[in-house]
Structure formats: structure tokens, C-alpha cells
Design a binder for these strands. Structure first.
Length: 567
DNA sequence: GCCGTTTTCGGCCCGACTGTTTTCAGTCG
């Protein structure tokens, strides 16, 4: 059994215990042990004494060893004997937790969602103590929703919804400050729901307007400070929290941190005799201290201003090199984008102006190459014409320069779409795979090696070709790719498009360990998409990407030195 | 079940909302 499987088994034990109604602290001990394994970078066979790891004690260490040796455990077997496995699926129904499920099982013999549906329809459930007619109704609607709604939503699905709600809040009366929080703010690849924190002096009025204006499929809860709805749009669950202006910073922190991050913060506070809640910090003398910013809140606990993406309850409290961390303000260029010359929506001049508005000093136009006919890829002749247009644009600019580049296909047989003679006329060459995703790892790696070993290629774009929650991407041996990038002095891309985020976090960590430079690029096909840059930067922070290894923080002179090496 | 500069017992993060209750339990994040 490998580490991932052991972690899943520990979590399974926790779920069974939840239904059994075990001591909640015992249940969380199993969850903590699973989390401790997950947060430890070592492989299972590299760990000697498991009890040395914080969160794993004598009991859980024994269970883990059992899983490793026999593939099973006495504890889990006993639970499985006692509790039907089908009960686990009931946890997916909103409003049902371990205790209620146990009651349904003990008193009505309900073992599955189908059983529950029948019992609700026969109005048997409302007869149980602690249940009522309303609960029954909610359970039935919950079962119906289950079939419609995805459990987790991909970041690219949430991004446009956040944008829309942000726009609504920005023009709304009674709104003093607002921000999206939750796992979306931490740049998780998927989220269960979307959280918004709103500072307002008129929560009641705002709540009514919100319920009346937004396109709502279902109101889940609507209290004085919290409104929970499911939008018609993709059946997206969205929570709004209303707080007073002085509570805004602590509320935003509270609803941004992962559960584990918040637990750690509260433990830190508790050790000082203080208490953290979403409304502020209760000091030793009982007074409530509030903050004007999250930075001030962290400073109160002698902590740096931990970026949202890093608030996961682990490394952010152990590492100290925050000053090396990539930040959006360091970005001065974008090295991958498309124009109307291939499949983009805007002209070279429009892109150039938009880039300058975003404060950049330089950028590269990288339209597709001839192989990609569907994207109107450029022939060598059109590439020369395009270069002239770019030059013309540059002549009219003062402190900004566009470079002429290409996003060139690596063809299925491994050859490159342009000859060296064409490539050497370009400032910057990206090589990418857009075809024959199903090839063996050996074939894919041979294609990538051809590109990396070409002296005129500077960067590999979206190195795995994945689409989050939709497509795995092609078979890349990432340690090998990183080693080649190092050997040939090439850049690997972090594509900031929310569909891609490729390199992913684990791959970015490999690149950092090997000191391989990374470029965070938007791959924009339209002006608005240039705004994916902050998302890419925040995602990079999850992997502790260092500023000096991010190519688009380099000055134009540094960048020119790099691209001219081969000439 | 885990943990310990309150150290081998007695805690374990904190609060909102709902529905079923007459003061609170369960669920959720």
C-alpha cells in the first residue's frame, strides 16, 4: 500500500467513526494523522519512526504499519463489520452528519440514499425525535440536488462567477468593502463553494437586495450575518458574510484560511491568553482588538503578512524566506500571448497598449505556428510580415518594447514546425505540444527533448497540457523534463490561464529545487485575459516560487541578455 | 487518539444557522 492509499484508509476510518458516533476528538485524531502523512514530503519507506511525526501517536502509527504490511487493519475491519458501507454516501446529503445518519440507521434501518428517499416519502423520518417535517423536505430536496450538482467546482468555472459578483458588489449601495475568500482566494484548483466577505452598515437591506437581484436557484440559509444561496449559474453554492467595517480584516482572514491554518492561528493566540474569532482578537483583559488590514492582524502575532495562497496550516508557520517569494508587483512582462494574426481577439497595437496600462516594460507576441491550421497558425512569410508590424509599433513607444516570438508546435513525429533558419530570426521561441496527446511517455519525452535541445528554443509552454478536472494531459516524466531544462538552460512555463495552471504546484516545486527558471504567462487570447497574471502569481506562491527564478520579473536588459545567448 | 515551558490527565478552535426545541443539538465551515 502506498502513502496515498494509507491516507485514504485513515480518512475512511474517521468517516466510519463519525457514523458510529465515536468521540469527536478520536475521529479528528485519525484525520490529523492522515494530514500529518500528507504534509510530510517523505515517501512511506523513508519514514522510520512514525510516532516522531506530530499528530501520529502509538495508536495511529500501529494502524498505519498494519496497512503497510497487510493492506488492511483490525480497526477498519471491525468498523466495516458494524456499519454498512452504503451509509457513507449519506454524508453527501446537506444537513446529514454522523449522528443523524446513525439515528436513521438504528431506528429505521436506512442504509442507503434510496432507502432514505423511500422513508422520507412515506413520512417516516419526521416521526423520529430531533427530526421534523421540514427536515424531511430538506432531505428530499438534498437528494434531488445531488444528482444535479457537481461536488467540487473547477477554478475556471468559478472565476467568471466571482468576476460577476465582484462587479455587482462594486456598484452596490451599502457596501463598504468586499472580497472573495475561501479556497478560491487560496487559489485551490477546485472548491466546493464560493465565499464572499462584505463590510456593510446595512446588512438587512443588502441581504434583501442580494436575494432579489442575483439569479438564485435556491436559498439555503438567510440569517442576519450569513446568506447561503445556490446560483442558477452551474448550481454554484455561494456564501455571503456581512460584517461591520472594523471586523472586516479578521473576518476575511477567518474565511480565507484553511481549517488547519485557522486552528494553528487560534492555538498561537491561545498560548498568549488571547482568542481569535471572525470579529477580532479578544485580548487577555477581555477587550476586543480589531485591525485595519490582514497584515496588521498577522503583525499582532509577530507573523509576516502570509499570502492567502499559503494559508494551509503547514509550511507558512515554519518557513521564514517570505522575502524571496514571488509577488505580483515584481512582474514586468508577459511572454506568451496571441493576436488577430492567429487565434487572438485583439491586434498587436491593442495588446501592446493594454500591456503598458498594466505597467509592463516589455512583452512577447507569440502567435501559433503553421501546423495549427484551426488556429490560423503563421507561415514563415506571415511571421516576417508580423515582425514588421511589431517593429512599427515599437518605434512609436517610449519605455516599452514588444518582442517578436512564436508559440511553435512540436509535431507528432517530434520535429519542430519551423526550421532553425526561421527560428533564428525571432526574438523568443516557445515550443508546445498541441497534438497526439495519447502517445507513450517515451514518444512524448522524445518530442520534448527535441525541442529542449534546439539552441533557438527558449521555453516550453504548458508542459503537461492538462486541463484542470477535464483532461489529464500527456505523459510527461517531469523530473526528466526539469533535468533537461536545467541542462539546456531553458525556461518552463507556469501558464496562468485558470483552465491550465500548468506547471502544477508539485511540478513547480521540482523546478525550484533544480533552480530552473519559470515564466508565469497569461497565454492571453484577448486583452481581458492579460488579467490572469495575478492568479498565476498567487498559484506560484503555493509552491514557494522565488522571485529571482521568475523570468518575467527580470528587467528588459536581463531578458535581452538571456534571449541573445544563442546569437 | 494525541499531546505536554499549565507534562501522564484533561483538555482538544470558534461561531452561525436551522429546526426542533422550550434551552439546545446537530451540522457546517
Amino acid at each position: 500500500m502506498n502513502k496515498k492509499q494509507v491516507i485514504r484508509k485513515l480518512e475512511e476510518i474517521a468517516i466510519y467513526m463519525e457514523i458510529k458516533g465515536e468521540n469527536p476528538f478520536k475521529i479528528s485524531a485519525y484525520r490529523k494523522a492522515a494530514a500529518a502523512l500528507e504534509n510530510d514530503a517523505r515517501a512511506m519507506d523513508e519514514m522510520e519512526d512514525l510516532t516522531k511525526i506530530k499528530g501520529i501517536g502509538k495508536g495511529t502509527a500501529e494502524v498505519i504499519s498494519e496497512f503497510l504490511v497487510t493492506g488492511d487493519s483490525v480497526v477498519l475491519q471491525a468498523l466495516q463489520q458494524e456499519i454498512p458501507a452504503t451509509l457513507m454516501s449519506l454524508l453527501k446529503i446537506p444537513g446529514l452528519g454522523g449522528k443523524k445518519i446513525a439515528k436513521l440507521y438504528d431506528e429505521l434501518g436506512i442504509e442507503s440514499i434510496a432507502d432514505l428517499k423511500v422513508a422520507c416519502e412515506a413520512q417516516e423520518v419526521q416521526k423520529l425525535a430531533g427530526f421534523g417535517a421540514k427536515t424531511e423536505e430538506k432531505l428530499l430536496s438534498g437528494i434531488a440536488q445531488l444528482e444535479l450538482r457537481a461536488e467540487r467546482h473547477a477554478i475556471w468555472e468559478i472565476e467568471p462567477i466571482v468576476k460577476k459578483i465582484n462587479e455587482w458588489l462594486s456598484t452596490s449601495e451599502d457596501v463598504q468593502q468586499y472580497a472573495v475568500a475561501g479556497s478560491y482566494r487560496r487559489v485551490n484548483e477546485t472548491s466546493k463553494d464560493v465565499d464572499f466577505i462584505v463590510a456593510t452598515s446595512a446588512p438587512q437591506a443588502l441581504k434583501e437586495r442580494l436575494l432579489a437581484t442575483l439569479d438564485i436557484h435556491e436559498v439555503v440559509a438567510a440569517g442576519d450575518t450569513k446568506v447561503s444561496v445556490v446560483l442558477t449559474d452551474n448550481y454554484m453554492p455561494v456564501d455571503f458574510r456581512f460584517v461591520a467595517l472594523q471586523e472586516y480584516a479578521t473576518a476575511l482572514h477567518h474565511f480565507t484560511g484553511s481549517k488547519e491554518h485557522n486552528v494553528r492561528m487560534r492555538q498561537i493566540a491561545k498560548a498568549r491568553g488571547e482568542k481569535i474569532s471572525e470579529y477580532g482578537v479578544e485580548l487577555v483583559d477581555g477587550t476586543m482588538k480589531t485591525f485595519t488590514s490582514e497584515a496588521a492582524f498577522f503583525h499582532h502575532f509577530d507573523l509576516p503578512n502570509i499570502p492567502p495562497a499559503l494559508r494551509v496550516g503547514h509550511e507558512e508557520f515554519e518557513r521564514t524566506n517570505f522575502e524571496q517569494l514571488i509577488q505580483h508587483k515584481h512582474i514586468v512582462s508577459d511572454l506568451h500571448m496571441h493576436t488577430t494574426w492567429s487565434d487572438g481577439a485583439n491586434s498587436i497595437a491593442q495588446m501592446g497598449d493594454a500591456l503598458q496600462q498594466r505597467g509592463y516594460t516589455h512583452a512577447v507576441i507569440t502567435d501559433h505556428s503553421q501546423f495549427l491550421r484551426v488556429a490560423n497558425g503563421l507561415t514563415p512569410e506571415r511571421l516576417d510580415e508580423q515582425r514588421m508590424e511589431i517593429e512599427k509599433y515599437n518605434q512609436a513607444q517610449q519605455n516599452f518594447r514588444l518582442f517578436a516570438g512564436t508559440e511553435m508546435d512540436i509535431l507528432p513525429d517530434g520535429t519542430l514546425d519551423f526550421s532553425d533558419d526561421v527560428l533564428q530570426r525571432l526574438d523568443f521561441v516557445i515550443a508546445s505540444i498541441h497534438s497526439s496527446f495519447n502517445q507513450s511517455q517515451q514518444e512524448i519525452m522524445a518530442r520534448l527533448h527535441n525541442a529542449l535541445s534546439n539552441p533557438y528554443v527558449h521555453m516550453i509552454a504548458h508542459p503537461t497540457g492538462r486541463i484542470i478536472e477535464k483532461r489529464e494531459g500527456y505523459q510527461v516524466d517531469m523530473p526528466q523534463l526539469v533535468a533537461w531544462a536545467k541542462e539546456y538552460g531553458k525556461i518552463l512555463e507556469l501558464n496562468a490561464n485558470p483552465y491550465r495552471l500548468d506547471l502544477c504546484e508539485a511540478h513547480l516545486r521540482l523546478a525550484m529545487e533544480a533552480d530552473v527558471p519559470v515564466a508565469i504567462n497569461t497565454d492571453a487570447h484577448a486583452i481581458e485575459q492579460l488579467d490572469y497574471m495575478p492568479l498565476g502569481v498567487q498559484y506560484a506562491q503555493k509552491a514557494w516560487v522565488k522571485t529571482d527564478l521568475v523570468v518575467n520579473t527580470w528587467t528588459r536588459e536581463q531578458f535581452e541578455t538571456f534571449i541573445n545567448r544563442q546569437k
